[in-house]
Write a protein that binds this DNA or RNA. Structure first.
Lengths: 224, 224
DNA sequence: TCAATAGTGTCTGTTAGACATTATGGA
DNA sequence: TCCATAATGTCTAACAGACACTATTGA
């Protein structure tokens, strides 16, 4: 939230939605705005002179979340919806996805579960909603989900990532069938016992060269 | 392409991709840039003072195409890719869809088939490509396709619109099955003979109240 | 033994797409 | 009479989701 050194009104800001899987749900990084009212808002900044949009977005996310995004995409440009904390006339929204846990937020920053969001300035509310939607329909899940997990993981962990990113439950048997058909993972010979039930086999990300005529992954899965 | 009256550098421009079905293919509206080299570019303008993005986009499209868009959506914000005819630092791209035929272009404007596009300034090339992609994956076909056609139409005409907008061929029998399942059209008692073959029955757009538990339309159709 | 989770095999309903056939006009 | 297009019925392969079952651990 640095100001332009000459005090000029910035022509636009880059406002970011940083998302991470955390405690079994999706969390967004908010920053507490100092000053009289205790309000929350999205991290944002004015681009440095000559700095491209993408680099500004990366910089803002990295500063605010304490880690670099595993994926990032532009949401849209927003004007109107007057209430913006920096009074910028135009916001370019970006959404970034961070590995599980999310990194250590910068000063005033905090990961907040999607379910329990506080009220936000009008424009930031819109950017956040659109950001989640953009994440869900532009993200190519296959290459990214694995960058959110450690090198070896159980299929249940992987499924949970997919469920969080897609925002809906998946069918276990179908998920595994689709995964196998896509040749994305291979089993290791390790197993991990997690509390009660049967231990789960660990897998690693190992995309095979695409077979002749092989289809892509289709995670159109629904239900229990 | 009006200039800011005080000659100030505009902080951003709104650049538009106007699309229409025309002569059995999709056409985009380009404007010939006057001056020494005979170049083409997308229509664009600087927003009027206080004018929201959407209204600027509508204004530019309407001026350039001579008709209002049946649908419009924002593409993204672009910077870099230096070559922009107005040297704007930041472009907000919009894509608009116009009814069949497209209206009478303003001065210097011309509908150009997607297949035979000339070279464009770098940024405009990107905006155009992204605009078609945005059109194809954000457009909700069902409510819009009908606004591109006259009140009554044959199912073949409707299918052709869908094919142009989706950018691929559809399977005739499947298309009609899906259409029937969606309760979007109803037959009139008129028929139209078009050259050689059997005359086609005319249909009109008549969306039925959604049946309990009825699914939406799925045009996942492929092939011949 | 019970509860909980991992992992699999089988069945069924839906549907996209192929194919074939009939219908109906113009040339 | 051909030929082109409309319109429709039937068949099949693919597959999502349901369901049931076995396997393997901790409590």
């Amino acid at each position: 939230m640095s100001r332009d050194p000459r005090g000029k009104r910035p022509s636009y800001t880059v406002d970011v939605v940083a998302v991470t899987p955390r405690d079994g749900t999706l969390a967004v990084l908010l920053e507490r705005r100092g000053g009289s009212r205790d309000g929350w808002g999205l991290p944002y900044d004015v681009p440095l002179p000559g700095e491209p949009l993408e680099r500004t977005a990366t910089r803002v996310i990295t500063r605010a979340a304490g880690a670099a995004p595993a994926w990032m995409g532009q949401i849209a440009a927003y004007d109107g919806l007057t209430s913006h904390p920096g009074a910028s006339a135009l916001s370019i929204g970006y959404v970034g996805l961070l590995p599980v846990g999310g990194g250590a937020p910068g000063p005033g920053g905090e990961w907040v579960a999607l379910a329990g969001l506080p009220g936000l300035p009008e424009r930031h509310g819109r950017i956040l909603d659109d950001g989640i939607a953009t994440l869900r329909d532009r993200l190519d899940l296959a290459p990214v989900a694995f960058r959110l997990l450690p090198a070896s993981f159980t299929l249940s962990e992987l499924q949970q990532i997919y469920e969080l990113l897609l925002g809906r439950r998946l069918h276990k048997a179908s998920f595994r069938r689709a995964l196998q058909a896509a040749w994305l993972v291979e089993p290791t010979d390790e197993w991990r016992s997690e509390g009660r039930g049967r231990p789960a086999q660990l897998y690693r990300y190992a995309p095979k060269k695409r077979r002749r005529g092989r289809r892509g992954v289709r995670f159109d899965l629904l239900g229990s």
